[in-house]
Design a protein around this nucleic acid. Sequence first.
DNA 1: GTCTATACTGAGATAGAC
DNA 2: GTCTATCTCAGTATAGAC
Lengths: 211, 211
Amino acid sequence: MIHHGATKQRILDTAERLFGQYGYAAISLRQIIAEAEVNLAAIHYHFGSKEDLLDEVVLRGVTPVNERRLELLEAHEAETGGRPDLDKILEIFLMPMADKASRHPDFVRLMGRLMAEGLLPTIIQKHFQGIAARFSAALARALPDLAPEELAWRIHFMVGAIAQTMCGTPAFAPILGEPAPFHERLRRLSAFLAGGFRAPLPQPEKIEVQL
Amino acid sequence: MIHHGATKQRILDTAERLFGQYGYAAISLRQIIAEAEVNLAAIHYHFGSKEDLLDEVVLRGVTPVNERRLELLEAHEAETGGRPDLDKILEIFLMPMADKASRHPDFVRLMGRLMAEGLLPTIIQKHFQGIAARFSAALARALPDLAPEELAWRIHFMVGAIAQTMCGTPAFAPILGEPAPFHERLRRLSAFLAGGFRAPLPQPEKIEVQL
DNA sequence: GTCTATACTGAGATAGAC
DNA sequence: GTCTATCTCAGTATAGAC
């Protein structure tokens, strides 16, 4: 414990666990320092603020996932020669997170919470804008007949569905029994999203107001 | 201001506006009382706590929407004789909220935030469990070939997409220009969801770990 | 029954001693 | 690098004026 950065590590690990299990807003810095057995000011020394601590937790966890995603996407694009497959793109985007979930379930729940909460848009967006642009471009090539605006909206819908699935609280689905393994969840999600992306275009605005 | 319940109303209106625009966690009771020009303790007198205030905001706004939803659903089920149409069910669920949004945009943003945040699951679930059961049953009849478990998951995905659309921050879709009118958004969403519900079943688990 | 004034506890943040 | 003390502001609780 003679400052090998052990303090910083313990703070990061504890924060990831507590934020993931109970949510960012629900966990106080004082709860973290109690479990990590460090001093309150140590958090502000190492990270600056509660929000910056969250930022570093996200950065640490998401970096290897996004690297793996890019790696797989580039391999697939090379294979298919600029005409990637929709189902494959979705699988490539989701599976690295599923693998992460098997080792760090709390981190993945945290990511789901953050994606959903409009509260921390900056933090998430910062770590995802590169990946988002890359996958958006791939989706555009996989769906050449879809108008860019419609594609953008469908990506938006996808983000919501992914976020909901990652935090994994089946609010409106009381039928669901045990928490299904993450890979299975994401296979189901992948099929759903593919159907959504391939759906026929919405009808233009109806005249009648009444349903 | 001679206590015709004007205080309670002003608190509700101001809370709805501020919670919707900035989020529940981001707004303090002291910000609400400043804009509503009431005393701090008046909130606790009328509502009990910050969370109970939120609950009443949600209840007030969601009641007419859900009543309209049930009314439309029952009419449709009567017309079609127990074999409702998927697209129609989605439209019936979404359009009353779109109508609400044209008059109370802040309320609808708030609903989106709350549905997304796992933080307040109790509040949302309380006001939606009746509606959810009703629409789940309708969806099951519209999609008789879908296994109940798969249907439950797809509803779960739908909730995420709806929540994302209602709070309306297009995090991963910077292509989107001006904030589109709510009815248009929901028509696009409706088409996307219908495609998702009709998607072919996901493949059973693959053996290979490697992608 | 309605509202006001005020105090209490716990949150995140900061300064400075060691 | 670490820890103590302290600051400000949050939500909450209570006593009492009208």
